[in-house]
């Protein structure tokens, strides 16, 4: 599969096998194989990776905001091995279910402490 990373991969939506939205491709990581040829190893998603790529004061503010939701700092982005990618079109489709990936700390915190406590939170609006 031949892909232009900056044009067709970065900033695309990550979608799991069931169509759940997992995050954006906030950054990517390359590695060298046995012959010294670089290959795309990991997709990174999460405010930590995004903040670094955005850079500057605005990027730092982003990371600081997100870090309020985690206990272990600095916060690590969610790493998705590239072999879990099924196909790339207007989104990046993964072979796995969102439940099998770690949940974003901010999502988990807000679910537990705010949204999940409001009556009717478990019901889809349709």
């Amino acid at each position: 599969m031949r892909i232009q990373v900056s044009r067709e991969l970065l900033d695309r939506q990550l979608v799991d096998v069931d169509g759940r939205l997992v995050g954006k491709v906030d950054d990517v990581e390359f590695a060298l194989d046995a012959h010294g040829v670089p290959y795309l190893r990991t997709l990174l998603t999460g405010p930590g990776a995004l903040g670094l790529r955005v850079g500057g004061r605005i990027g730092r503010m982003l990371v600081l905001t997100a870090e309020r939701f985690v206990t272990d700092r600095p916060m690590v982005p969610l790493r998705i091995p590239y072999r879990l990618v099924a196909r790339v079109d207007s989104a990046v489709w993964l072979r796995v279910r969102a439940e099998d990936l770690p949940t974003s700390p901010a999502e988990a915190w807000l679910r537990r402490n705010l949204i999940g406590r409001i009556p009717g939170a478990g019901r889809a609006g349709g």
Binding site: L14, R20, G23, E107, A124, G125, G126
Partner: peptide, 13 residues
């Protein structure tokens, strides 16, 4: 922008 799950098809949780 952030790629979060959104919309009214899924439950608010």
């Amino acid at each position: 922008y952030f790629g979060w799950q959104w919309g009214k098809r899924v439950s608010p949780r």
